[in-house]
Write a protein that binds this DNA or RNA. Structure first.
Length: 1152
RNA sequence: GCCCAUGUGGCGGAAUUGGUAGACGCGCCAGACUCAAAAUCUGGUUCUCGCAAGGGAGUGAAGGUUCGAUUCCUUUCGUGGGCACCA
């Protein structure tokens, strides 16, 4: 029987689906294992062969762990919010929701063909309200929290308010030292940003809120963005080229805009520490460490000439203080305008204008020194030396204080700057400085350094640091290069912020109003003044001011302890947790009446309205609530009769009325005995609510006082910062992830994805995890135990070369044909203009009438050609003529050896370069199993490599060879190059497996494979594991082994790599159950024990011969045998060896 | 400019801890089967000198450590990727 992969793969994929083989349960006696892929952004271009690389790797590992007896979670989903969908919408008028859904469908189809073991019942999609409800919820928790530096964890803003009320902010300074609380935007309200409890209480609400904003972990501030006036929008660095927009070439300037941020800097230390406990590659840890960039140094204040201002600099090398020859401040530094002298004004302004036109990228890659002298001087605090102050773009406003003290003899860039501006250089390094280049050493003895002279720099750091603090010149400081993460985008296709602005104060939405759904916006265009597109939606963006919830309810301390408090929103996580737990408890202990009514209300059964049962709202838990219609249904149980309960109920009714909630009550008896009437009443109430739509709008009701929703949306990384938790409990409507579920699945054991997320997604999700851990919502503070970075698969582009020429006499018509020259012709002709022309005249009939002098230009520009119509490097000429709707139908080819050879180049895989390969095509042609194994066989997963389809035949051959160990060969085996659908017969198929006892030799082959494949799989060396499979099958085929005892373990091992064929073969061996649930074969190393080894014998480290020696031989006996060897004797030539190195079970080296 | 990775046959790659460089696969060459092709099978395949036996060279380059280096160290060149010029 032939290996008919198409039928086999279809058959088992359906079988697995029917049996729900991949469904994973949160309850299992088995140990858990969590294998996670970085979920894809569903782009319109679909999958190319680079995408599945990591998925195949993780799939193999997940299946392997399952065979090893683990309960394996291996989910998949979509990171569906993002810019491309929005741009596509702008260009094609197709709503992002629609194009995203289409792309997802397409991705899913492609993924399904490869046979992954994803549990699709756990699929998440970040753009679905049921998902981003919890993204918004976590954002609100960040908003409602601050980082307590004393306890080193996030705590509620309320507890911060308590602290302020008791002791001001003495022990909790404002995290951002630049912040100044101002009175009416002018004078500082408090000096030094510290305030007492009394002062705190005296502040207005606005002032209090401004201060709290400076502490919140999600906060609003101002940040510079690339602003393009013509497009009316903010651009990413990528979209700015040479100071103008990539699209349209419009000018781009820096503009300050209100932005949301995550205070990730507060977590800097813990993010660093956490790296010690995780298994990331050293390179990855280094990248993250460098990004966080912790450094110890001093912040030093310099007096400035003719100014009250002080120039604050940060330096890690205070020991070089006497080598400071000039100061440099960033162009954006606020002091620039204040200290620049009249004479220097023009020069500085010109320089600033020039800098403003330059993109961040340009500033980064610039090697040229540039800058301007401000005319001002600073004074060295120790010896009062005058130091000129320059402004230059090489100093960045965002790092440190945005100003540096320049020490040219010790710093490369400072040195170049000094040379460029002819600033005299003070040598504080003595002989260690040669005047030619800077020397950044810490090991020189200081010279020319006043009281430090003669001291080792390393030691001087501490001494100066102490002096600086003692003398009040500055203070020791830990600085981080990392900055807070910008968390808002002025775009449409993202999560809306659950924030309402009123009087300049940001109010969080009531958590019960989540999700705040993204409104449907057909025409996506930027809002005015740099706002996002949502700002155009007046109906949505404007809300009645009265709907804003009270931020600082200031309940008395007595009240604060009690929960739930009527009329009071669940402002803290603790409260929410209590309520949630309580609600769950209620759901468990329902009354008969409640159950009966619930059966009628659930599932949008009544009027299509969604009811929730025991859903916490407004600090208590109603029996049923329909949030959209603001209708509450209560069934009175006996306990409601108590007086106190009555009082409580009244208070809550009051709150609900205020918030336009409607409440209907029924008795148990009504529900149980008169259900139809009850339902009718509820239905009436629901529709009555509808009729109020014609009544005054909420805005009008509010008397026209308006508050505004936040118009920005969250960035792409919001949804991806916590998705690994959602997979654990994807359908939970009560919480983002039940603690029980996260306790069971715990950390991701293996996380597979590309390095491009090294400092973005990975840092953010680590921070969110730490935050959720602080709140006690999960029990681990690092999300990923082990990270496996897959390399990028590059495209291998193919080129054809089309003749281009110009004639001196333009009136002569050109030949109306396109000539394509094979690669080696181009190589030869391109470099030699004359021989190229001669070639044309001599070899191409159409040019035979031309003369050499007629030409004035000739070239062979390369054109990307679809790699799929090139066989290796040979162009399929017929397919080429049909390509692109026959654009090259009349092409003429100048061949070499009868072939058209294409040019080759390795570049990024991209549709526009026609170098993408669709995995579905390969699956169709060779089968999923071949494709999976080939992707793995290509090389180490971690390594980037160009794609080349050529070798796939070899893997396919391997699977067929394996097949022939099970089935009798037939002559009519289909070939992969038959990519047609001719009917596959099953005639002549015959299983040839025997139950004979295997020989030791056969067992050795098997156990060698078990050892190697298990070790390789365990260390993610999939390419060598595939090769071990090949070796094993080659050896078994050589000795014609068809024994079940050998082949069955082999099939089980293979099932993680090539699941379809393995399942088929496993069943052919007589098994009924799925191979997925088989037990991984156990290594029995007694089959591998050898008694002798072929020792390599080297003379002076150079291999000369090998000798077979017993493995347990000692050095003395070995030496004797070796010296008797003819080859060794020959090299010794009668002399005795100087030394003999004997490494047991490795080698022997004779030194002469 | 800075950071990270990487460099081995015609090609993808292997060599896990300093111990036989080139496993496995592609490609290529020769042969078997075939009218022929495909498929399959067998043998060969780092370069170089040599009829052979057997030498020599060889992991980007140059040095170093070592009995022994693809592996460790220094310098250097090329390629790929990232970036917020990180004081």
């Amino acid at each position: 029987m032939e290996y008919n992969f198409r039928d086999i793969e279809k058959k088992w994929q359906n079988w697995w689906k029917e049996k729900q083989t991949y469904k994973v349960d949160n309850n299992s006696p088995k140990p858990k294992y969590y294998v996670l892929d970085m979920f894809p952004y569903p782009s319109g271009a679909g999958l190319h062969v680079g995408h599945p690389l990591g998925y195949i790797a993780s799939d193999i590992y997940a299946r392997y762990k399952r065979l090893k007896g683990f309960n394996v979670l291996h989910p998949m989903g979509y990171d569906a919010f993002g810019l491309p969908a929005e741009q596509y919408a702008i260009e094609h008028g197709i709503h992002p929701a629609i194009s995203t859904a289409q792309n997802i469908e397409n991705f899913r189809k492609q993924l399904d063909k490869i046979g992954f073991c994803f549990d699709w019942s756990r699929e998440v999609n970040t753009s679905e309200p049921s998902y981003y409800k919890w993204t918004q919820w976590i954002f609100l928790q960040l908003f409602k929290s601050f980082y307590n530096r004393t306890t080193k964890k996030a705590e509620s803003i309320e507890s911060l308010v308590e602290i302020f009320e008791k002791a001001g902010n003495e022990n909790h300074p404002v995290p951002n030292s630049q912040f100044q609380l101002t009175e009416n935007g002018e004078q500082p309200a408090v000096s030094g940003n510290t305030f007492t409890a009394e002062q705190w209480k005296s502040f207005t609400e606005k002032q209090q809120q401004d201060i709290l904003m400076e502490y919140r972990l999600a906060y609003c501030g101002y940040g510079e963005v690339n602003w393009c006036e013509a497009l009316g929008t903010v651009l990413a660095n990528d979209e700015v080229v040479n100071g103008v927009s990539e699209r349209g070439g419009y000018p781009v300037v820096k503009k300050k805009l209100r932005q949301w941020y995550l205070r990730i800097t507060e977590y800097a230390d813990r993010l660093l520490e956490g790296l010690r406990s995780v298994h990331f590659s050293e390179a990855m840890k280094e990248m993250q460490t460098n990004w966080i960039g912790k450094s110890y140094g001093a912040e030093i204040d310099f007096r400035i000439s003719d100014s009250e201002e002080k120039l604050k600099v940060f330096t890690t090398r205070p020991d070089t203080i006497f080598g400071v020859d000039f100061m440099v401040i960033a162009p954006e530094h606020e002091l620039v305008s204040k200290i620049t002298t009249e004479e220097q004004k023009k020069e500085v302004e010109d320089y600033l204008a020039w800098v403003k036109s330059r993109s961040d990228r340009e500033r980064m890659a610039e090697k040229q020194v540039s800058g301007a002298f401000t005319g001002a001087y600073a004074f060295n605090p120790f010896d009062q030396r005058m130091i000129p102050i320059y402004v230059s773009e090489y100093v960045l406003i965002g790092y440190g204080t945005g100003a540096i003290m320049a020490v040219p003899c010790g710093d490369e860039r400072d040195f170049k700057f000094a040379k460029h501006f002819d600033i005299p250089i003070t040598n504080i390094l003595g002989e260690k400085f040669n005047g030619e280049e800077a020397n950044p050493t810490k090991d020189a003895e200081l010279a020319n350094s006043n009281f430090l002279t003669g001291m080792l720099m390393r030691d001087a750091i501490k001494v100066v640091m102490e002096d600086i603090e003692d003398l009040g010149y500055g203070k020791a400081k830990v600085n981080y290069k990392m900055r807070d993460a910008a968390f808002s985008r002025q775009r449409y296709w993202g999560e809306p912020f659950p924030i309402i602005w009123k009087d300049g104060i940001a109010y969080p939405l009531d958590e019960n109003e989540l999700p705040l759904e993204l409104p449907n916006l057909q025409n996506i265009k930027p809002g005015k003044d740099g706002e996002g597109p949502l700002a155009n939606l007046k109906d949505w963006i404007e809300v009645p001011a009265s709907s804003v919830i009270d931020l600082t309810p200031n309940p008395s301390p007595k009240e604060r302890g009690k929960n739930p408090v009527p009329g009071y929103i669940t402002n803290t996580v603790e409260q929410w947790k209590i309520l949630s737990a309580y609600a769950k408890e209620n759901r468990r202990n329902t009354t008969e009446a409640e159950d009966k009514l619930w059966q009628e209300l659930r599932n949008r059964n009544l009027n299509g309205c969604k009811f929730r049962r025991q859903h916490p709202i407004a600090g208590y838990i109603p029996d049923f609530v329909c949030l959209e219609k603001k209708l509450i249904v209560e069934i009175d149980g006996e306990y409601h009769n108590e007086a106190e309960q009555k009082k409580f109920d009244d208070a809550r009714t009051e709150w609900l009325k205020e918030h336009q909630y409607k409440l209907i009550r029924f008795t148990n008896d009504e529900v149980i005995n008169h259900l139809p009437e009850v339902l009718q009443k509820i239905s009436n109430a629901l529709t009555a609510e509808d009729s109020t739509a014609a009544a005054p709008s909420p805005l009008e009701r509010a008397g026209g006082e308006v508050a505004l929703r936040e118009s920005s949306t969250m960035p792409g990384y919001a949804g991806s910062s916590w998705y690994f938790l959602r997979y654990m409990d994807p359908h939970n409507d009560e919480t983002f992830c039940d603690k029980k579920a996260s306790d069971y699945w715990n950390q991701v054991d293996v996380y597979v994805g590309g390095t491009e997320h090294a400092v973005g997604h990975l840092l953010y999700s680590r921070m969110w995890t730490k935050f959720l851990f602080d709140l006690g919502l999960i029990s681990f503070d690092e999300p990923y135990k082990k990270l496996l970075n897959q390399g990028m698969i590059q495209g291998s582009s193919r080129f054809v070369y089309r003749l281009f020429y110009n004639l001196n006499d333009e009136s002569i018509p050109k030949i109306d044909k396109q000539f394509f020259f094979s690669f080696n012709h181009v190589l030869k002709l391109e470099s030699n203009y004359r021989s190229a022309i001669q070639f044309l005249i001599k070899n191409i009939a159409e040019f035979s009438s031309f003369k050499e002098e007629d030409f004035n230009a000739i070239s062979f520009p390369p054109i990307h050609v679809d790699v799929n119509i090139v066989d290796g490097i040979e162009l399929d000429i017929e397919k080429f003529k049909q390509w692109r709707n026959g654009e090259y139908a009349n092409a003429e080819f100048i061949l070499e050896d009868g072939k058209y050879i294409c040019g080759v180049e390795t570049e990024k895989m991209s549709k526009s370069k026609f170098n993408t390969v669709d995995p579905s095509d390969l699956v169709e042609k060779y089968g999923a199993d071949t494709f999976r194994m080939y992707e793995m066989f290509l090389g180490p997963v971690e390594q980037s490599k160009p794609w080349d389809t050529k070798g796939i035949e070899g893997v396919h051959r391997f699977l067929r060879k394996l097949w022939r160990l099970f089935y009798k060969e037939v002559a009519t085996a289909p070939s992969p190059s038959d990519n047609l659908s001719r009917p596959f017969g099953r005639a002549g198929g015959e299983v040839i497996i025997t139950n004979e006892k295997p020989t030791d030799a056969e067992l050795k082959i098997l156990h060698k494979a078990i050892k190697k494949i298990e070790e390789d799989t365990e260390r993610f060396s999939f390419n060598t594991a595939v090769s071990a499979f090949m070796v094993c099958v080659n050896e078994l085929a050589d000795i014609k082994c068809n024994k079940k005892e050998i082949l069955e373990p082999l099939a089980i091992m293979l099932s993680s790599y090539a699941p379809h064929i393995a399942e088929e073969l496993y069943h052919a061996l007589g098994n009924e159950a799925s191979v997925l649930d088989a037990k991984y074969p156990t290594l029995n190393s007694t089959y591998l024990i050898e008694s002798t080894k072929e020792y390599p014998i080297s003379i002076n480290g150079k291999l000369r011969t090998t000798i077979s020696l017993p493995l347990d031989i000692n050095q003395k006996d070995a030496e004797e045998i070796v010296l008797q060897n003819d080859v060794v004797k020959k090299w010794l030539d009668g002399k005795s060896p100087k030394k003999i190195i004997f490494v047991k079970s490795k080698m022997v080296n004779v030194v002469i």
